[in-house]
Every structure is written in C-alpha cells, then in structure tokens.
Design a protein around this nucleic acid. Structure first.
Lengths: 244, 244
DNA sequence: CGCAGTCTTGAATTGTGTCAATGTTTGTGG
DNA sequence: CCACAAACATTGACACAATTCAAGACTGCG
C-alpha cells in the first residue's frame, strides 16, 4: 500500500479498516517538496486545502501591525496543518518550512467527502482538533504566566516529547534547527534575551549544547520548574462511532 | 420545536434540515443551571461530555505549579465548551461560570452517533473547532507580542465583537462582569497593572466607564493600535458534504 | 452597619527590552 | 579548498515596562 501521511498519523490512534485507508488515500493529492525557508501558505492568501506533514519541520506564524512576528506552533511529521482554511478561504497564518519538508495536499472538498464516507475518521479528526486546542492553551499559559527560563524550558521539553513519539527509544538530545530569533518569536521574547536565558540554563547545568544539538541533562528539574505535561500520548477513541 | 443550544449555534452558519435538528435534539441531555462562580468542570477531573452554553458567560482556565492562573478563553451563549474531553477523559481546563448560566449536556458518545448520522454537522463542528484554534492563536499573539494597553484594548474589542453577534444592533457599550484580577489572568498581567492600564485608557479618552459598564469611545483608534480582526463572522460551509 | 472583596494609588524593585559592538558559524563562488 | 559575505550568537551598559509591596478608599452584600 502507498505510503500516506494521514494514514500514518491516524494509525497511531486507531486500527484503520481497509475501507478507511482507501478513503483516505482517495482524499490525498500529490505531495509537495519544500526547501528550508519556503512558505507553503501565506497569511491572508487563498487556501482550499489542508496539508499533512510527511517529513520535516514547519512553523505557523502571524505578523503584527507593529512589525513583530509570533510563531504559533511548530509542526512535525504526521501533523495536520492549515486547518484554518476549513473555516475560511483565507489562511489565518503563514506556514513556513524550517527544514526541508514533504507535505501532502488534502483539498477540503475531499475532506468533506471523507467526513461523510467515514464517520469514525471524522470523529478522530475532531478529537485531534480538540487536542490541538489544548496544545495552544498550554502555550498561552506558558507565555502568559511564566518567566523567560520557564518558557524556554517548556519549549525544549515539548520538542523532546514530540520527537519521542516518532523515535522509538528514549531521546535526551536533539538537533534544534531554530535560530534564537525563531525561539524568541515563539516564546514572546527578544532574541537577545533568549540568548541570555539559554546561556543561563547551560551555566546552571540543566542543558548542554554542541553546535545545534541540545542535550537535556536534568529533565526532572525542568519538569519541576515548569509543570510540563506531555500531551502527545494517547487520544481517547472509545466514543467514536464504529468503522464502516 | 424545543429550544436547543446547538441548533441555535449551528443555525447561525447553516440552514439545518429537520433530520439534522432531530439528531441534535436527540444528542442533547438536560440543561444545568449555574450560579456565578460555580465550577462546571474542574481541571484534571473526569469528563464525558461537552456543554453548549445556552445563557450567560463562563471562562476556562488552568492553574500553574507556581500558583498563578491563566484564563484561556471566555465563553458566551452558543459556544461549545469542554471540548478537551473529546480527546481525553480528564478535563484539561477548569470551566467556571462568570455570571449565572444555563448549559446543556452533550455526552460524547451521543456526539459520536451524531457524527455518523449527520456528516454535514460533523464537518461544521470541525470547522468551528478550527475557528476556535485561530481564536487561540490570536490570543497567543496578543499576549506574546503586545504591551499592556494593546492587550487590554484587544480584549475589549473582542468582547464587543462577540456581543454584537447576538445583539442585533450596533453595540458600543456593555457590562463587564469581570474583576480586574480576572482580566489580568486573561491577559498575563497583574491586577495592579490592569488597573493602571484601564485608567490610562480612560484618561486618554478612548474608553469610558460607569460602574461595570464600559463604553468604547474611539473604536477606530483601538483597532488601529492593535490590528484587531473580528473572527466572529461567517464560517465557510461550501466544502461540507450534503445534508442527509 | 460592618465586613469582605474590589479598586486605586504610590514607591521601590526586577525582568526584559533596546542599542551597540564583537565574535562565530555557515554557505557560496572563485 | 580558500576567501568572503551574510546570517547568527554573544556580551555589556542602559532604559523602561511590569511586578511587588503596601496602604487606603470604595462597593455590594449579609
């Protein structure tokens, strides 16, 4: 069977039936390759599709009237992105590739048909959207109520938790393809202060860096300081209607 | 026909068929009355249902390890709340009534059946979830990248835009049932600084206050300063599958 | 009427931003 | 493979926005 971004993702949560796989494959359109830095969708531009990340990292961001930028979320393999186009035909955020990426098109009319043909998939997608909402809430809480070092720690823990989903074994270090400006725009800090905060964490011995590789030395301390909760685990599926 | 929270809400976006109305009514359980201050769902507690707000205001919030609180979102009549229980059986946030409220239970197993019976409703609920996500992104941007007076201005504009959805005519003033502590917890500021910021806006003449009533005097100035976008308008429904 | 919860204000402190200069990496073309 | 430019990281000095602490004035409710 053909490899599919959405099948891989939904298969993490459910055992898909053949009919469900077929329906998903039918909804997906050709893949698109992006170079690091490429913009997949621009804020305000027309958009009639979602995308499934097959490979690589992206982020979504918005621009402010005052010239700043807020990075809203990082996206990894398996994520369903550009979902604002389900509600409006204009994209609410810019999607930018951080590393080289492959994404798969999922036209929204096809998704409509998938919702009708496979209600269990529809329900799971709804649950995933609800989980995304909680992820945004977590970030809001972090940025609204924590200091710079807790924000940064939370980001590192979050990235690591997410990478552990894909990498089977235990991960305690990873390559961080983000500039300090990116990190600042994600955390609501300036790049200068991000730098100071990183160096302080390094000096206190809870993290180590070699080039762009980061190693989490004292995960327990970071978790204790931030109250970080890993939300990347299971999604409850008991309420879903039976598969067709 | 019996009055229903969800029918009223979805009816804003679609002309529902009789079969769809029937199915929604079948999914909804009895209503629940809350007094201002009551907690509908506590963070971490079991939850097997969503709720539709029929009347009143609520907010969702989380607690931090350090003792603080972040208010994530305010909810008004027609909103679908507690959606994190679609993904997990433990609630991710606390739902608290701000004013006296009436909410309607929507058990998630019933929602599963609704998804199967009425795919067009499923699709619309998905679009609404996507719009909720964008609303969270807006708040993240406001808190992450704006100063205190822009944050406060955005909150006021947002509340007013939301009240205009229900109130037919033009609204330029409204009762604000929030304490300054609440506002601070929503905006990532202390209550003291909220007070200073309100008084500064008042002094500069862009807002006026009488008791708990707020009047927006110079809406254009507030919009210009914040880049506020009203997202409470239409939701695109062209991609939805046909009704059954 | 009195009390508890709010709102308001001032003064001192702290965290983060701004500005500016220098060092370090990365990638590109010769 | 080297030279160079551009992007990125690092650091210091200073400015400023928001917090903290504290005290007093409202307001609404039992």
């Amino acid at each position: 069977m053909q490899l599919s971004g959405l099948i891989a993702r939904l298969g993490r949560h459910l055992d898909l039936t053949d009919a469900e796989r077929e329906a998903i494959l039918h909804a997906e359109r050709g893949e698109r390759r992006l170079r690091a830095g490429d913009v997949l969708v621009a804020e305000g531009g027309e958009s009639h599709a979602l995308y499934v990340v097959r490979q690589g990292w992206l982020h979504s961001s918005t621009k402010l009237v005052t010239g700043g930028r807020q990075i809203l979320r990082f996206h990894y393999a398996g994520d369903l992105i550009g979902t604002s186009s389900m509600a409006w035909s204009q994209a609410a955020a810019t999607l930018t590739a951080i590393s080289d990426c492959i994404v798969i098109d999922l036209p929204k009319t096809e998704l409509g048909l998938l919702f009708r043909a496979q209600p269990r998939i529809a329900g799971l997608l709804y649950a995933i959207a609800a989980a995304e909402n909680v992820a945004m809430s977590d970030r809001l809480t972090t940025i609204g109520r924590m200091g710079a070092s807790e924000r940064l720690s939370t980001l590192l823990l979050d990235i690591m938790a997410r990478l552990r989903v894909t990498a089977g074994g235990i991960v305690d270090s990873f390559d961080l393809p983000l500039t300090q400006t990116d990190i600042g725009d994600a955390l609501g800090l300036t790049k200068v202060h991000v730098n100071r905060t990183i160096r302080a964490l390094e000096k206190s011995g809870v993290i180590e860096r070699t080039g762009r590789r980061v190693r989490i030395v004292d995960e327990a301390a970071l978790v204790a300081a931030t109250g970080f909760t890993d939300r990347y685990g299971e999604i409850e599926t008991a309420w879903l209607p039976p598969a067709i």
